[in-house]
């Protein structure tokens, strides 16, 4: 019986996305769907009910031509750690059936599909809209079923799903490492599908706490920011942009507040 509060120091997997490099091609979305057995409906035009574990948003600086600027922002699950990385992420804390969990060993927020009963409270809690409900039964017409990955269980109708940072890849890499008598992974041994699919190399993935991993250095970049930091969700996805308006778009500010204003108190919820 593991006591929830006793967590040994583990990894803290996260992502740094260089928005200056992202072209908005959508390869990350396609790779994610193929890797994680995300089904397609006949009509995917209604984005409010289609499943995209990682979704590329299109941001503009809202200025008229010729000053108009565009930025594409891929948004996976942020795997929020909450204040002090104690696992008090918005969704984990509210799930009534413990169907979503914060893994202190990896910092990954998991979703247990067979336990989720579809109350959607976690969706209401997530400010990033990173959680998706299976409104329909998943269907893979014809031979498409043969393309399904055997490492990821398809989700049934009526449950919530979301990006897992390709956790099955972590499990496979750990199994291999154990067989070889190792307890740790090299940086390249565990990479998410979106990271590997990005043609411009905008996505970097690794252990945010490991100084040998690229992400640990990149997150310290002066132009690095996270989405909605002021809510104290403590996300594990960092973005880098050289443009101030993009960094400002990452959070909400009152009219005269400078970008990067910090939260009022360090732990106003817990």
């Amino acid at each position: 019986m593991k006591k929830e509060t006793e967590h040994k120091p583990g990894k803290k997997y996260g992502m740094v996305i260089d928005l200056d490099k992202c072209t908005g091609c959508g390869s990350c979305m396609a790779a994610c769907m193929a890797e994680n057995n995300v089904p397609c409906k006949d009509d995917e035009s209604n984005k409010l009910s289609s499943i995209t574990w990682i979704r590329v948003y299109r941001l503009t600086n809202r200025k008229p031509f010729p000053e108009t600027e565009i930025c594409y922002l891929p948004r996976p699950c942020m795997h929020c750690g909450g204040v002090g990385d104690q696992g008090h992420s918005p969704c984990v804390s509210v799930c009534p059936a413990t169907a979503t969990d914060y893994d202190h060993g990896t910092g990954i927020v998991s979703q247990i599909y067979t336990r989720c009963f579809g109350c959607r409270y976690c969706m209401a809690a997530c400010p990033y809209h990173a959680r998706y409900f299976n409104w329909w039964d998943p269907v893979w017409p014809g031979d498409l079923k043969k393309t399904l990955s055997p490492n990821v269980s398809p989700r049934m109708r009526g449950v919530v799903e979301k990006c897992s940072f390709c956790f099955h890849r972590y499990q496979l890499a750990m199994e291999k490492a154990y067989v070889e008598g190792r307890r740790d992974l090299e940086e390249g041994e565990y990479q998410t599908a979106c990271t590997q699919a990005c043609p411009s190399g905008a996505i970097t993935f690794g252990d945010l706490d490991n100084p040998d991993h690229a992400v640990a250095k990149m997150k310290e970049h002066p132009n690095a920011f996270r989405l909605l930091e002021r809510l104290q969700t403590n996300p594990k996805v960092y973005y880098i942009s050289s443009r101030e308006w993009v960094r400002r778009a990452g959070d909400n500010y009152l009219k005269n507040e400078p970008t990067n204003s910090k939260p009022r108190a360090a732990a106003h919820h817990g």
Binding site: M1, K3, E4, T5, T98
Partner: peptide, 12 residues
Amino acid sequence: MFPFIFEWVWDE
């Protein structure tokens, strides 16, 4: 709900 259920924890 019951101590014999998987993942039961004894905490405050």
